[in-house]
């Protein structure tokens, strides 16, 4: 059962990712990306991370993708702009000679590593309470720095998108 669920979710995630990078229309890419995010959220739930899975749906598939779709609609790209995307040969060469060896190395390394199977995770692993205690205990300073980062991002976004300063 768990294996079937994993296979379905991972297949959906990878197909969504492929749709994201191959569509000509950015709106199609955005839909593929939302599908990938939701499938990844399912994978988080199956790997004992319910808090992260919920966060993925709320923030990624919800807030961030709404913003992206909103901007795509706002820009209202002219038809000609979508047609004339020409990919130079050097891009293909660069992508092929960097990504393919990297992927080969990573996957060969993963498959050759032996991960020992442990007993099932304890009660409450990855729950909101457990992660929250870690977040507001050991990682309190980092958490506060993240709030500063978000503040700077808000100011930056307003300054950038304003018509004149």
């Amino acid at each position: 059962m768990e294996k079937t669920l994993f296979l379905i979710l991972s297949a959906v995630a990878i197909i969504g990712a492929l749709v994201t990078v191959t569509r000509k229309n950015p709106l199609g890419s955005a839909i593929g990306l939302i599908v990938t995010f939701v499938a990844l959220s399912g994978l988080y739930f199956t790997s004992d991370a319910p808090f992260v899975g919920a966060l993925q749906v709320l923030v990624y598939a919800g807030a961030i993708m709404v913003l992206v779709v909103f901007v795509i609609m706002l820009l209202n790209l002219p038809e000609g702009e979508l047609e004339e995307e020409k990919i130079p040969p050097r891009s293909w060469a660069l992508a092929f000679f960097s990504v393919v060896p990297l992927g080969f190395l990573c996957i060969a390394q993963i498959l050759s590593t032996k991960f020992e199977d442990k007993e099932p995770v304890g009660e409450g692993f990855g729950s909101v309470k457990a992660v929250g205690q870690l977040l507001f205990g050991d990682y309190l300073l980092q958490f506060e720095v993240v709030s500063l980062l978000l503040l700077v991002a808000i100011v930056g976004a307003i300054v950038m998108a304003k018509k004149r300063l």
Binding site: V21, L40, I72, L82, S91, A95, V99
Partner: peptide
């Protein structure tokens, strides 16, 4: 890893800034 690689491939190949 596959999702990361697809993202990297898309970043290097595509020309549309939204993608």
């Amino acid at each position: 890893t596959l999702i990361f690689l697809i993202g990297a491939m898309g970043f290097l190949i595509r020309r549309n800034i939204l993608v």
